[in-house]
Design a protein around this nucleic acid. Structure first.
Length: 467
RNA sequence: GCCGGCGUAGCUCAGUGGUAGAGCAAUGCCUUCAUAAGGCAGUGGUCACAAGUCCGAAUCUUGUCGCCGGCACCA
């Protein structure tokens, strides 16, 4: 039986349309998923949308829509994004799905409550009416909320709490022993030192007054399950509701750094509490910045992934996201860089090489050459190693170094000249192109297909017209 | 404030004790099979700054400056 491999992205929050940051997460996860399939694993690749919470209610109101319609619409946008990026996800889960997501959430809640890991406690906090949320003492100036310049009220409400403190040590030991591997490792140190500071129990419900849009606490109509507590469970509810529970534990959760803590502390704690296994690894990618700042609507620097694909095509977008950024660090997006990459790497690099070799092949039959074998082997080994380390940018660079070797080789042997070796030389090149095609499959599946097709038909057609 | 990271060619970065590197951009030469594509060569950096250890430091230590991340319920 094939080894199973379960990979997830985070579930995207549907308070707004998708931005290019989530596109990055999807594409990175997709490369991993495709690569694992190539390795022969039985892969399950999940993505989806996180649709509850006060922010969503607010966003829907602002859009003048009913919350349910609003989230349907937004969720669809994320589904479309995955489609236009050629993401190979096998499933798509929504937290508003009462048939698929809710039962698992309710069962886990009941289990935790029955074993005493969820309990009711009075929560005292400062509530700012303007913010419509609890505020922290340290954020106040002269006892007033900075945004609304008013004193928050002291509010007491009953909330359910999860005994996070009870499981923190166990989570820490999982992290220490790398049962949960955090990539990149500085994040691991970050969470470890955070745990060492001491962990308190976490509230896992909100009163219905403050939060209407969510999953009700089983057996208590006055409370709604806290968004995070419920959202994380998607990774399991998607499996249970489709009869694929044996895929757990996840091999890798791909997430952004903003939600790192929930995944590396709360989630493992919940899993340990219900007697389940913890995820094997958590991969934390960086942010894409625009003009040196985090993208936001108010700054007007948001990059729309749909427009990118429409303007440049699918694979150039995938290529840019994977090649330009260091996978775990922030990187700035600029159209100038994008077009530089496109022209130098795709048009003049890969595209031109395939084109010149295939033009030669149109005229002469290829023999069997092995002049480029050592370059091919080197590229293959480097690419596989780097892909295993999730260094997508460097893995691509290793493929491009093979492209460079091919260009140098052509310059040296001049296979267009009539010599006896011509056939073998072209054969060497065809072998290299064939390997490039194979190596590109996880990254640029459509382009790989095109190359394969052109090799088969021995007919050159431009892959990436210069812009 | 505390903890951690970073500061190397115009840009993106590699380089953990032994004569400064790659890719892109820019320049010159060669070439024409190819998407006005390709190859070669040069240019380009007091490796943030200062002091120290060492025969020798981008690389180790200390200090200064600058940037970034974390310091729980924010999806």
């Amino acid at each position: 039986m094939k080894d199973r491999f379960y990979i997830t992205t985070s579930i995207a929050y549907t308070n707004s349309v998708p931005h290019v940051g989530f596109a990055l997460e999807l594409v990175q996860a997709d490369v991993i998923a495709r690569y694992q399939r190539i390795l022969g694993k039985d892969v399950l690749f999940l993505t989806g949308t996180d649709e509850h919470g006060a922010k969503i209610v607010k966003a829907a109101e602002k859009a003048g829509k009913n919350v349910s319609d609003f989230t349907d619409e937004m969720s669809l946008k994320f589904k479309e994004l995955a489609k236009i990026l050629d993401i190979s996800n096998d499933d798509f889960i929504r937290t508003t799905d009462e048939k698929r997501h809710w039962p698992t959430v309710e069962n886990i809640w009941k289990k935790l409550e029955s074993q005493g890991d969820i309990y009711k406690k009075k929560y005292k906090g400062l509530y700012c009416v303007g913010c419509e949320s609890f505020v922290k003492e340290k954020d106040l100036v002269n006892g007033e909320c900075l945004i609304h310049h008013q004193k928050p009220e002291e509010v007491q409400e009953d909330n359910y709490f999860f005994k996070l403190s009870k499981y923190a040590d166990k989570v820490k030991s999982s992290l220490d022993k790398e049962e949960i591997k955090i990539i990149p490792s500085p994040r691991r140190n970050e969470i470890l030192s955070f745990i060492e500071q001491g962990i308190e129990d976490i509230s896992c419900s909100r009163s219905k007054e403050n939060l209407k849009w969510g999953i009700p606490v089983p057996g208590d109509d006055e409370q709604i399950i806290y968004i995070w507590f419920e959202a994380l469970i998607n990774y399991i509810s998607a499996l249970e509701s489709s009869g694929r529970s044996d895929f757990w534990p996840a091999d890798i959760h791909c997430i952004g750094k903003d939600i790192f803590r929930f995944h590396s502390l709360l989630w493992p704690a919940m899993l340990i509490a219900i007697g389940s296994k913890v995820p094997k690894s958590i991969f934390v990618h960086g942010y894409i910045t625009s003009n040196g700042e985090k993208m936001s609507k108010s700054l007007g620097n948001v990059i729309d992934p749909f427009e990118l694909v429409k303007k440049y095509g699918l694979d150039p977008v995938r290529y840019y996201l994977l090649r330009e950024f260091s996978p775990t660090e922030d990187g700035g997006f600029t159209y100038e860089k994008f077009e530089d990459r496109y022209n130098s790497d795709l048009a003049k690099g890969l595209g031109n090489l395939v084109s010149r070799v295939l033009k030669l092949l149109e005229k002469v039959e290829a023999g069997s050459g092995s002049d480029l074998d050592s370059d091919i082997k080197k590229a293959k080994l480097n690419c596989e190693r780097l892909l295993g380390e999730l260094k997508f940018n460097e893995a691509l660079a290793s493929i491009w170094s093979l492209i460079g070797s091919c260009d140098k080789y052509i310059e040296t042997v001049k296979p267009w000249e009539n010599t006896e070796k011509k056939k073998e030389e072209i054969g060497s090149l065809i072998k290299a192109i064939g390997e490039i095609e194979v190596l590109l499959r996880p990254f640029l599946p459509k382009t790989a297909e095109k190359i394969k097709e052109q090799l088969k038909r021995k007919k050159a057609e431009p892959l990436f017209p210069r812009i």
